[in-house]
């Protein structure tokens, strides 16, 4: 097991180094630079001389490989550089938006699992019933409506019409602020999870061992609890790991509409302002996060499923 983990960590380091090189080069190919961003809509006032001066002040006039080596050296010492728009340490800026995003992802993931298990299991058991069709259609609708539109509709209903929830912001972290954004994020993704569970329940419930169990007189409830759900949990877990990257990406839209001060919004803002230090810190952090969660998911799966456990042990040898 230990060797498995070490092997994965070494692999991850390679991914991180190569990923950081690509990102470092890639974000520089975007048109514009921090000096232009500083002028905003007054860009026409930026003279070439001023642009060079500011670029030089920010240390962006050296060759790209040289800048990369310097940046990497700093990162190994725990220095992420300073934001070009606020002058604050990039690490501090990113740390500030970590908690809001974590809260949002956690609560939406909770909602996703809740919805997926409840409706996935019930539709799987009542395969091809009217109820199954209705839930399927509704889940497809939520999958296909654009989150920014859905978010506005929710705001109009709950905040303007009913007046019971705030439209946006984070307040002081009260639950009522997180309800709408996490609901939008959850409903946009719950459909995939729901289908996943439903299909697994359908396949498993028609397999021989379930018939055998039923024939022996085990109750539906205990079959569900002891056999159907555990079987469905493996694909669910691995899909959670994969979907995390997708959730992080869609949080950009949701966080912007709901003025949620998280990582997604910070990423968008930093990209628009060419705030390279902050942008790189976010990208690296997201990469580490996704890698870690996937590692964790693999370990969890191995812990749950003996077949996978043996596979993991084999791989470690």
């Amino acid at each position: 097991m230990g060797r498995f983990i070490i092997k994965r960590i070494v692999e991850s380091l390679f991914v991180l180094i190569i990923g950081s090189m690509l990102c470092f080069a890639f974000i520089r190919t975007l048109p514009g630079d921090p000096a232009a961003a500083m002028y905003g809509d007054q860009l026409q006032k930026l003279s070439d001389a001023d642009r060079l001066r500011i670029i030089e002040n920010l240390g962006l006039d050296e060759s790209l490989p040289m800048q990369y080596v310097k940046w990497l050296g700093q990162v190994f010492q725990g220095e992420w550089g300073q934001s070009t728009i606020s002058g604050v340490d990039a690490a501090t800026v990113v740390a500030g938006s970590l908690q809001p995003t974590f809260l949002l992802l956690l609560s939406s993931q909770f909602l996703i699992l809740l919805l997926a298990v409840v409706f996935g299991v019930s539709t799987g058991l009542k395969h091809r019933s009217l109820y199954d069709h209705v839930v399927t259609i509704i889940s497809f609708i939520f999958l296909s409506i654009p989150p920014f539109w859905f978010a506005l509709m929710l705001m109009i209903f709950f905040s303007v019409y009913l007046g019971i929830l705030p439209t946006s912001g984070m307040g002081n972290g009260q639950i009522r602020y997180i309800l709408l954004p996490s609901l939008v994020l959850a409903l946009a993704h719950a459909g995939y999870f729901l289908r996943l569970i439903r299909n697994h329940i359908i396949i498993t419930k028609n397999s021989g061992f379930i018939f055998a169990l039923k024939a022996r007189g085990f109750s539906e409830w205990s079959i569900l609890k002891k056999h159907l759900l555990p079987n469905a949990s493996i694909p669910l877990l691995s899909y959670t790991g994969i979907s995390l990257a997708v959730s992080l990406a869609s949080s950009v839209v949701v966080e912007t509409i709901f003025s949620w001060p998280g990582l997604g919004r910070l990423a968008l803002k930093s990209a628009l302002a060419h705030d390279y230090p902050v942008l790189l810190a976010i990208i690296m952090l997201s990469m580490v996060f996704v890698i870690l969660v996937n590692l964790l998911v693999d370990l969890l799966c191995a812990w749950i499923d003996p077949r996978l456990r043996n596979q993991v042990l084999e791989e470690g040898k």
């Binding site: 920014f148 506005l152 905040s159 303007v160 007046g163 439209t167 946006s168 509409i257 003025s259």
Partner: peptide, 18 residues
Amino acid sequence: FKSVPDANTRILQLKTGE
């Protein structure tokens, strides 16, 4: 000074008095 980046959200917040 509150940051509300989305223009539609700003209109809704004017409506709710936020």
